[in-house]
Design a protein around this nucleic acid. Structure first.
Length: 135
DNA sequence: GCCAACGTTGGC
DNA sequence: GCCAACGTTGGC
């Protein structure tokens, strides 16, 4: 199983909304690097749900329930979507600041490439963040 | 609201 | 194929 991090501006689509919807289409990705990661996802993979702009924190974990398929918001075959469902809310959100302050997480893409909205997370990084969230 | 970082576009 | 110009993202 692989681990990921998905970014969303809470104004556009929040964790709370995902919980209500129970499932959503992760569409609108128009960046090749992010697209490639979407294609690598498997059913059952887990992903941190990160609130960008407002909050700037990891709030929950979702899981991939459908692998990459044609993005329904565009006819261009270059772009794909996956389906995700909420798995659990973190006991305590982990903020970007806390991640930056953690010596073992300075290599995270979240810290170094702030603009990539879909990114892989190493198992080790995942475990550290889980610990920071009080799990 | 500003601006740095990055990606994309288009002229040559 | 290079690179300047432009647009977007996202932290502050």
């Amino acid at each position: 199983m692989k681990f990921w991090l998905l970014k969303s501006e809470p104004v556009k689509y929040s964790w709370e909304k995902l919980v209500i919807d129970k499932k959503t289409v992760w569409d609108g990705i128009r960046n090749y690097a992010a697209r490639n990661f979407l294609k690598e996802m498997s059913v059952g993979d887990e992903a941190f749900f990160y609130h960008s702009n407002e909050g700037k924190e990891i709030v929950g974990i979702c899981k991939i329930v459908k692998t990459a398929y044609q993005d329904p918001t565009t006819p261009e075959p270059a772009w794909v979507s996956v389906d995700v469902s909420p798995l659990k809310k973190l006991k305590k959100p982990v903020t970007l600041q806390e991640i930056k302050n953690e010596n073992n997480l300075t290599k995270m893409i979240l810290v170094n490439n702030t603009r990539l909205s879909v990114q892989p997370v190493l198992k080790k990084e995942w475990e550290i963040i889980m610990k920071m969230s009080g799990e």
